[in-house]
């Protein structure tokens, strides 16, 4: 039948288009990956990890202050993001069903969609304005605010997977509800929660926009958290748009380090969660 041939031709054509779309999608993504590895590998040496950036125009130097700065910023952000996320999630999962919980859930989802530069502006009004200056603290607050909804939602998912019978067993033994929650529910979901925390760290490690006018960046070592601090993504940005070949080289190296660390953290997170995916 002729109709059948037209139909199967159309079918084949559409299948081809889907394959083509996949090819178009994957090509630039693979190229980005290829360039990061190729350009980055060529610029990483020992100096890269132990030196601060050289002045413009001079060769050599590294991004040690940026890497250390990023670690400090992330640690401080974790102090804000992790407890808020976990305790908030405990409320959502253990007292679920009330109206307030779903409003909070909705707000967390909306919050995670707010552009990170806005979070930077908020940290600016909250910290930089009253403290009269850019500081690492302000940067950490911005990053911490970004972490909250991520930790909150992943932790809640994990807590919901803990079987109700486990809670009941503990309550039946006379353990108060709050101790049950902390020592049975929370502990049972711990692996998944650690996964969520690691993923949120991987996410904020690469955030640049919220640091632009909070942590600001620093060409040298920062001595206090009340003064501007360098961060790896900030340095990548500044060096990439500068007209110096040698700074471009550093930027590629920084990009490779950042991607390797982020993928490493993500893989660790998946490894932690490996036997939980079935629930």
């Amino acid at each position: 039948m002729n109709g059948m041939r037209v139909r199967s031709l159309k079918n084949a054509g559409m299948m081809l288009l889907m394959g083509l779309a996949t090819f178009i999608v994957l090509t630039p993504l693979i190229m980005i990956f290829f360039h990061i590895v190729k350009m980055g590998a060529g610029s990483i040496n020992l100096d890269f990890f132990i030196q601060i950036p050289s002045p413009p125009g001079e060769s050599g130097g590294g991004m040690a202050n940026g890497m250390v700065g990023s670690v400090i910023l992330i640690l401080m952000a974790s102090v804000i993001g992790i407890p808020t996320g976990i305790f908030g999630a405990l409320y959502l999962s253990e007292y679920e069903g009330n109206r307030l919980a779903s409003v909070i859930r909705f707000c967390a989802d909306v919050l995670s969609g707010v552009p990170s530069i806005i979070t930077g502006l908020v940290a600016y009004t909250l910290i930089v304005v009253p403290m009269h200056g850019f500081s690492a603290i302000a940067g950490a607050v911005a990053l911490g605010l970004i972490m909250i909804p991520i930790v909150l939602r992943t932790t809640e998912e994990q807590l919901k997977m803990v079987p109700g019978t486990l809670r009941e067993a503990s309550l039946a033994l006379g353990v108060p509800f709050w101790r049950t929650t902390l020592q049975v529910t929370l502990r049972s979901g711990l692996k998944g929660i650690i996964t969520g925390i690691l993923l949120s760290i991987a996410r904020v490690a690469g955030e640049t926009a919220p640091l632009l006018f909070t942590s600001l960046g620093n060409h040298f070592w920062s001595k206090k958290i009340t003064e501007p601090m360098a961060a790896l993504p900030l340095q990548i940005f500044n060096f990439a748009i500068a007209p110096y070949e040698d700074w471009h080289r550093l930027a590629w190296g920084g990009a490779l380090v950042l991607v390797v660390v982020m993928f490493g953290v993500s893989l660790t997170a998946r490894w932690f969660n490996r036997d939980r995916s079935i629930g």
């Binding site: 305790f87 908030g88 409320y91 909070i104 509800f177």
Partner: peptide, 23 residues
């Protein structure tokens, strides 16, 4: 303990709404 616990977790959870309003 239970009431205090509920209060604490609610406080943290509520901070999400607070952040959004504050923004």
């Amino acid at each position: 303990g239970d009431r205090i616990f509920k209060g604490i977790t609610l406080g943290f959870a509520f901070s999400v709404i607070l952040v959004l309003l504050l923004m």
